[in-house]
Computed example of a mutant assay.
Amino acid sequence: MATLTNNIAQHYRITYEAYSKFANGINRCGTISEVIKDLRLHLKYLLNYHAIRMLLQQEDEFLFLSAFRNDISCRIISKTAVLAFEEQLLKDGVPIKTPVIPQEILKGKLSLEQLQNPELWAWSFQKNERKVLVSLVADENTPFAYGDVEILKLVTDCLEAKFQEIFLKNQLAEKNASLADAYKTIKLKNGKIREIVENQKEVIKERTREIVQKNEKLLHISALNAHNVREPLSRIQGIIQLLEVFDDKTCREELFPKLVTSVEEMDVVLKEVIEMASQELVKLKAEKI
């Protein structure tokens, strides 16, 4: 009896030493592939099993880990890929121990005929508001016992924490990449906006220069025309005032001819003004077109 107790104690001591190496290796992992590499190295020394299937909830999906000795893989699956007994575990959380083993667990990599009285063990563990489903196939030649559940929970806790860490790091990296892309887009658009603003400034500057030139030209024409019109108009106004002073004969012989001359001169000046204004309007319309 003492020998059996010593053998059991030694077995668990070796198992926990193996778990310590496994956990240290997992802690150093930074990717899923590194985790799988560590599992291939240590998992066979921690648990007796022919197949292990682990599902870790990740929002609306599951991180799926499959192990057949050194054949270990990991991928994301949808809810539709969850097996019937796993759906039941999600609902009621009651552990399962049954000789009924779904063929989907073996995935064609293991035949039930090769096993001696195989059994399916399955659990639902609650971790940080997320459920972790673990199922394991063992038989009489590779037995799994109730005493091994504790080491299985330790392995599950370790993997759940590491997978969650990697998942969050990947999410953070994706968000950082999205922010970096958004920053590049904003920077590019800001550059385009600055370019448009600079172009608008140049256009406004050019238009302002053209308007100033046109105004200067119009002011020059206006001043010139006002001077040319003012001279005959002043003579006409002076003659009109003299009409009230001189007699009819003097008005007819001297003032009326001068009045006619001044009116004709003013008519010529006004025609020139109209012509110059018309030419400027034509130029403005041509520039707009």
Rank of each mutant, 00 (worst) to 15 (best):
K187T: 13
S73W: 10
E150S: 05
L270Q: 09
S222H: 08
K162S: 02
T15A: 06
A277P: 01
E195S: 14
T185L: 14
L83S: 11
D92H: 12
Q279K: 07
D38F: 04
L90A: 07
N117D: 10
V149D: 06
R40V: 01
Q114E: 09
V282P: 00
L47A: 10
R207P: 00
R194A: 09
S234V: 11
I32V: 12
S20R: 13
R40Q: 15
K107W: 12
E272H: 12
I96T: 09
K192I: 09
F22V: 00
E160C: 07
S234R: 13
T208G: 02
T80S: 09
E253F: 06
R75E: 07
M266F: 15
P102N: 12
Q171L: 15
L90G: 06
I186C: 05
L136C: 05
E17M: 01
A277E: 14
R75D: 08
E140Y: 15
E165W: 00
Q116K: 13
G30T: 00
Q10F: 06
K79P: 00
L39T: 04
L4E: 13
L218M: 14
W121G: 15
V82L: 07
Y16M: 05
L65I: 09
E160L: 03
T80Q: 09
K189H: 02
A286Y: 03
I196H: 10
A9G: 13
I101Q: 05
V155S: 02
L115T: 12
S33N: 03
K187R: 14
K44V: 10
Y12G: 07
V263Q: 10
P95S: 10
T185N: 14
T185P: 00
K288M: 15
R235E: 12
T250G: 01
Q88V: 02
K37C: 08
V137K: 01
Q88E: 05
A286T: 15
E253Q: 10
K37H: 10
Y19Q: 00
K201G: 02
F163M: 12
V155F: 01
G191N: 03
V282W: 02
L89G: 04
I52Q: 04
N117S: 14
Q279A: 08
V212Y: 07
